[in-house]
Each structure stands twice: as C-alpha cells, then as structure tokens.
Amino acid sequence: MGFSPTDSFLQCRQLLGGFSAGLDPALVNDRPAGLGNTLHWQLGHVIHTAEALILGLSGAPLSLPAGFGEWFGRGTSTADYTAATPDWAGLLAVLQSSTAHLATVLPTLPAKQALVQPFALPGTGLDARTVGAVTVVATWHEGLHFGQMRAFPALLAARGGS
C-alpha cells in the first residue's frame, strides 16, 4: 500500500468489489424492513458517486452509461429506475469498468490540482477544493456504504425483504 488518497480509495474499492461479486443475486433487489433501498441501489450509488465526485469535479471524463445519475444520484431511490437501468450482472460489469477507469485516470490527476468545481456538503462540514481532498471524501463515502451493504444480508435473512 501507499499513503496517497488514490491508494486508499482503490484499496476500499477492491474490498467493496470482492464483497459485491460474492453477494447472492436473489437478495439484491429486496429491501430490509425499515430501510428505503436495496443492495442494487447501494452499489449503483457508490459507483455513480465516486466518478461524479472525483472525475466530475476535476473536469475529467466519466465512464458511466447515460442515466446513471438519474437512477443512482444522491436523493434517488429504486422508484427512479427505468427499463434501461442495468440489472445486477450489468451493474457488476459497470463496477469493473468504472474501477479500471478510475485506476487509470486517478494517477494522472495531481492531488494538489484544484477542482473545476469545489465540493461542499451542507450540514456535514465536508468540503474539498483539490483532487486529493475530494478523493478522501469519496473514500469515506465508499466505506460508509460498504458498511451499510454488509448489514443487508443478515437483515434480509431475519425479516425477509419487500
């Protein structure tokens, strides 16, 4: 491992990718009682957010299919899905291609490089003005959703989904 924000992000993504690939596809569209979304949405949201934060705010090209933000952006839910929303296998394929894209582009973006559009999340104190700082925010977000996703299978097994 190295110590850069890029190293940290890619390490977290590797763990999330391994976990997601091992999930039972029969569970991914179920909602645990008391929660508003599914493993499918969680994974789509993580994929979308990483590229939107790191690449979008840096002015670098995104690799995601059209529609990703409308399906998986902040504040969306499975109710926003359309016929074009990828199924689980499709989402795993996008995860793989997006991770490869980020692993290629991130090392070309200096951590000190100013963002084209600074980031701030009201009410959290989170902000970022450089590529490195926004990569740290994206890594936090990825770890946060990884923790949530890891809780889903047990919750679904205990209560059944909806």
């Binding site: 940290s8 008391g34 890594t139 770890g143 919750l155």
Partner: peptide, 22 residues
C-alpha cells in the same frame, strides 16, 4: 494503519447508520 483505520471507521459508521434506522 492510518488508511485502514479511516476505512474501518467509515465502514462502522455505515453499520451504525443502518442500526439507527432499523
């Protein structure tokens, strides 16, 4: 270790968020 601690703590914050909602 610093990277791992940050990722580990983010992960448990995610779990705390799920528990809180449930």
């Amino acid at each position: 270790a610093a990277h791992f601690a940050a990722g580990h703590e983010s992960y448990h914050l995610g779990q705390i968020n799920v528990y809180r909602r449930i």
